[in-house]
Design a protein around this nucleic acid. Sequence first.
DNA 1: ATTTTTGAAAAAAACGTTTTTCTGAATTTG
DNA 2: CAAATTCAGAAAAACGTTTTTTTCAAAAAT
Lengths: 356, 356
Amino acid sequence: MKRTKTISIKDVAASANVSISTVSHVLNGTKHVSNELRERVFVSVKKLGYEVNPIASGLKSGKTNTIGVVVPSISNVFYSRLLHSIHAAALKKNYSVCIYETQQNLEYEMRYVEALRLKRVDGILLTSCVDTERPETKAYIKTLIGLNINNKHIPIACIDSDISPNLDAVTTDNVAGVYTATKHLISLGRQYIAYLAAPLYFQNSKERKKGYLMALNDSGIPVCEERIIEGDFSPDNGAVCMKKLLERGCQLDGVVVGNDQMAVGAVWAIKKHGLKIPDDIAVIGFDDNYPASLITPSLSSISVPKDRLGSTAVDLLIERIRNPEAPRRLVRLPGKLIVRQTTDANSEAVWDLSGW
Amino acid sequence: MKRTKTISIKDVAASANVSISTVSHVLNGTKHVSNELRERVFVSVKKLGYEVNPIASGLKSGKTNTIGVVVPSISNVFYSRLLHSIHAAALKKNYSVCIYETQQNLEYEMRYVEALRLKRVDGILLTSCVDTERPETKAYIKTLIGLNINNKHIPIACIDSDISPNLDAVTTDNVAGVYTATKHLISLGRQYIAYLAAPLYFQNSKERKKGYLMALNDSGIPVCEERIIEGDFSPDNGAVCMKKLLERGCQLDGVVVGNDQMAVGAVWAIKKHGLKIPDDIAVIGFDDNYPASLITPSLSSISVPKDRLGSTAVDLLIERIRNPEAPRRLVRLPGKLIVRQTTDANSEAVWDLSGW
DNA sequence: ATTTTTGAAAAAAACGTTTTTCTGAATTTG
DNA sequence: CAAATTCAGAAAAACGTTTTTTTCAAAAAT
């Protein structure tokens, strides 16, 4: 194969009869160059078909124009949607995105953050699976805050998890969201409302539970500990927890669930138990993830603004890259009540197939 | 902020009292180095906390250890699942993955392939949305085949689309898959089986239709053109097409659909039309995408091996990177019949929530 | 009218590696 | 035993940019 010499900025300079630095400045607009030379450079670039080498420029400038994205799961409907909006927003700002999937494994998360650091990405978007209550994680979070390579700071923005007052973050307004969900059930006349929580070591879960308690209090409904249960994240576990609640024998006519996954399991368990939804028990989840509209009965939920979550995160990160000294920012985005059949029997089943 | 000098291979060399090249060879294992020096190097590396700079090494070696992945949609359940397996496989081979989403837009696809070329990725995994029949695309495909930067070839492996006999590819065995699906309906005693095709300019769609025709022929069932219809990919359009079929008035007791999206729409339309599934009309899709198990009645389908599709593609690409001259490879992976309620009324509804 | 200041452009240094070439001793060969 | 080969290691040359420094002339200031 004919292997011609690769043409570099040097060749352009020679062809245009100017210096290398002049070519660089013309190409980057970093310094004023007379119209004549500037024109000559452009002509030569076109003539030679010159293509800048980002690796070389990255070496000198210390920028990779790449942001790393770390998510628990790529194929999860929620995170893939997030990835979608991150991709769009990043591209608009001329960054490419490099993805890593932690599988909810903190060890992997640490490894991937480290990999991105060594790769010298310009910034990292992190959906951490860290348990902020465990003391061991303190060190890790400290690492994140001070993440750097060769004394160059690498900014991090957190998505959907506010793990440190020193890291930029964007999250859903969990308290307000579950407050709305609970109020919704109350407005339907429900009095005996259970709460099925996702693991409470998650900041989000804590906030959501708070919303439930606040709504009951504000409505003068007594809180009954027997109606509160904590599970893990899975649909299966949602079903198990719901079964436990039902078997406890306390009166029940509604249940607010900390996320859609578990809510789907809860719906399944209630049906299995021979009760009617929503007549006997109304159910509402949180997230409004893709399958919510598909199951029967379709699941009411609090819709999390996935697209804005992603684009806001990118904005935060890029602002931080540009200005490392700016004050830390935390953005809370409002959720939205989506009423479907698990709280309104008359609601028509409309399959939301936007995940396709 | 104290900004200490960044420590480089040079510092390691000085500290270990060896030459730079020796350090490099020790670190990369590219040449035999005596145990003594090798040990000294390791000690110095550890002592100084030296961290190799992949940008610099990339500049000289011409490798980025990055593969680009171009998919039509990141949030689509099928592609996100693909992305998941690609990520896992790539990581295992020490490559990072950079993603681009084309939104089924060929112009974007071209732009992103170009971006990846300029970025000098080591290889590209492409799920093209090209219409192989249009003559204009010939040029584009030729570009893909000869993709290079500075005369360095950039290999491409295609996923789920065999767009050129000159590009490595991995696809599902579409013919066999739809053949199996159709035979399944026939085995249930169905005689008047319609075929709802995805756009036939897609290679996959053509192959799938072929499987339908073959199955009818092999079973001695006459092919009736009136029972064949071509749509686009969407659920909505699936419903529209199904409605048309129903209104044509020809006898119908089964329908094979070219993909799950349209199948879901078809199910919806049949229900709307007041017919019972599967009693009046049995339905089977293709892909076994996530929502298939969630809708009511749950959708029978041909399961596409998404994970193997991704990992095989990575394997193909990396082998190609290592050996650009090897003969072209096309891998066809078998699909698997998944029987659910749209073909078997007695099948129990089991929500597959693995997308979570 | 002489010294400063400015400005455009060139020259050179730097970025941190890998890879090629060079060196001199030790080993093998004829 | 002299010449050729191997070998470990050092030195130096690349890789293709950006950025700093230098140069020289023209404009501005004293």
